[in-house]
Simulated assay, not measured.
Amino acid sequence: MNLKPSTALRNEYRQVATLAKASGEPIIITNKGEADLVLLSVEAYEEREKMLDHRASILEAEFSRLAGAPTYSVEEVRSRLKEKYENA
């Protein structure tokens, strides 16, 4: 993780943007020595959003399973899919 003062956004925008894109890591922007903002490239942001969405869907499925929703083995799923394809 990189730290940059807020003046770097104004004076060195291109270098900061290039660093964000090249590293794929968050850049912490400071104001008066205190962490103020986080800067990410669009690609890194979208990748994080995908990961968080995926984790949320896994967590939702686990909550459903714990609440008693039916579960299926791999063999059961394959059998059901095979049956659907044969009847399609």
Rank of each mutant, 00 (worst) to 15 (best):
E43R: 12
R55N: 11
N31A: 09
A22Y: 03
R10F: 09
L59A: 14
A22F: 04
I28G: 01
L81M: 13
V74D: 09
N87V: 02
V42H: 10
F63V: 06
S79P: 00
T18P: 00
A35S: 13
K50F: 09
S6P: 00
R10C: 01
N2V: 09
M1A: 03
Y13F: 15
R65Y: 06
D53E: 14
H54T: 13
Y72D: 00
I29A: 08
I27V: 15
V16T: 14
Q15Y: 04
Y13C: 09
E75H: 09
K32P: 00
S23P: 01
E75D: 12
Y45L: 08
R78S: 08
I28T: 11
T30E: 13
A17V: 11
Y85T: 08
E76D: 15
L9E: 04
E49W: 00
Y45N: 05
A17T: 04
E12Q: 13
E76W: 12
I29S: 06
A44W: 05
E47C: 00
K32F: 01
K50T: 11
F63H: 09
E12R: 14
P26E: 12
R55K: 14
I28P: 01
A69N: 01
T18I: 06
P5Y: 02
D36Q: 14
T71A: 05
R48N: 14
A20L: 11
A8C: 02
I29Q: 06
E47A: 15
L19A: 13
R80T: 02
L39S: 12
E34S: 11
I28C: 07
D53T: 07
A61Q: 10
L37E: 11
A20N: 08
F63R: 13
R14N: 13
A56T: 11
M1D: 02
K32N: 08
A67Y: 02
E86M: 01
K50H: 10
E83V: 01
N31L: 07
P5K: 01
S73T: 15
E83Q: 10
K84D: 05
G33F: 08
N11Q: 15
R48V: 05
E47D: 10
K21C: 05
R78I: 11
T30Y: 05
E49R: 11
Y85E: 13
L59P: 00
E46Q: 14
S41Y: 07
E60L: 07
T7C: 02
L59D: 10
V38G: 07
E76M: 14
V77F: 03
Y45Q: 07
